[in-house]
Design a protein around this nucleic acid. Structure first.
Lengths: 223, 223
DNA sequence: ACATTTCTGTTGTTTATACAACAAAAAATA
DNA sequence: TATTTTTTGTTGTATAAACAACAGAAATGT
């Protein structure tokens, strides 16, 4: 069993609790009945159809937001990591079932917060709750922008354009033409919605043409 | 010049101001320096690169959320209408430039609210602001879920699957197998990221096979 | 160090889509 | 009503991607 205390500092500095003092944070964690849960690789934290009433904060590890298409093809919507939240939007939209799976990519620790119970108790009256909802609003905003960017990535017509758009966006995020990506080839293909082998082929073509250089997960944009 | 008063009831019942009494709403509208703005068909309300500090509420008309791809292809991310908000996520993420265009599809009236100014004034202290931020959180949640659904639609492999996924999702939204869609053929193609003529062809094939029936914008799912 | 599994790149073939060009229908305008 | 413009459907062709099958490299486990 993992102890919450071990992660206290990390929690305190996470976007969810940003701007709170120790007193507010401790009160909130208690009110939320906060607990740490451990998942192994390839476990499902959330399934399509689940009704979500908890806020999940990733303390350690990586999680895929996925969807299985009608005939079993996997769609990766996003890859989340440390300090990211899971399925916040389903907490905000009450009584809406999850339309995604959250699947661990590696061993993962998650902070689980009983959002529903807490909000009904304190009626949004306390200061800490006011800070919290402000933070949640900002977090969702960011998620929204990320989703739009993902739509841009997958909406390109050719594999080449998808790759170039994705890589440019990553470079911009990392503020450098040289960066590591979070996906392996198969996952990147599922994220961009293309065939892995065709994508591999296109990657090496881009390298031969001198547009990019890469080695494993390390990429560099030339030009 | 359009008068705000003419739309007062609609504004009062919009999701942004849901749950407020008249006093709170009036105070907020004043604090926001609320004003109605008119746009003609094909005008741009928001451009890529804009810094957004206003909340936009559509009172009348329709608006496309679009993105122009590198080589001039148009991507329609969403079609918004009455009581929808524009670019809320850019208000939530401060100092982030818009990565989308908002373009009117028809003559449109928009309520513009100076969010920045208001929040700095009342420091989130007043009740009405608390209700507001709660509402905004919920609205963003819904937007988020819609974006995920859009990703599902465009992530299908074939035109046929994109169409079937899109139409099923619409049927579910409208709670009926018979429904109207908001797009004309070209716009639907830009939304699903496919060639219009190929899509038209696939539509008639689906009709011949008896899977769907349609006439102009009216569709029916058979099975 | 070896065996096994996972990951990545390469190639040929089949299939689906984009693209272009056009015709018919519908809508808008004079 | 006639004319013009916009929208939609149809077809053939060129192109790009999916798929399958495989080989080598890298990572993992024993």
């Amino acid at each position: 069993m993992e102890k919450l205390e071990n992660y206290y500092n990390q929690i305190k500095n996470s976007p969810v609790f940003f701007g709170m003092n120790d007193e507010e944070l401790k009160g909130l964690l208690e009110c939320f009945n906060a607990r740490v849960r451990r998942y192994e690789k390839d476990e499902m934290i959330i399934r399509q159809g689940d009704l979500i009433s908890n806020i999940y904060l990733i303390l350690k590890g990586e999680v895929n937001i996925e969807k299985d298409s009608y005939w079993g093809r996997r769609i990766i919507i996003a890859r989340l990591g440390k300090n990211d939240n899971l399925a916040l939007s389903f907490v905000g939209s009450k009584n809406v079932e999850s339309n995604i799976d959250a699947v661990t990519v590696s061993d993962t620790l998650v902070l689980v917060l009983g959002y529903e119970k807490c909000t009904s108790m304190c009626q949004n009256a306390c200061t800490r709750h006011k800070i919290l909802i402000n933070n949640l609003f900002q977090i969702l905003s960011k998620e929204n922008i990320e989703l739009i960017q993902k739509i841009e990535n997958v909406s390109q017509k050719t594999i080449r354009d998808k790759l170039l758009t994705y890589l440019s966006n990553e470079a911009q995020k990392k503020h450098s033409n040289s960066f590591e990506i979070q996906f392996n080839r198969q996952d990147l293909a599922d994220y961009l919605n293309v065939d892995r082998s065709a994508m591999s082929f296109e990657l090496s073509k881009l390298q031969k043409e001198g547009l990019i250089e890469y080695n494993k997960n390390k990429f560099e944009l030339k030009s």
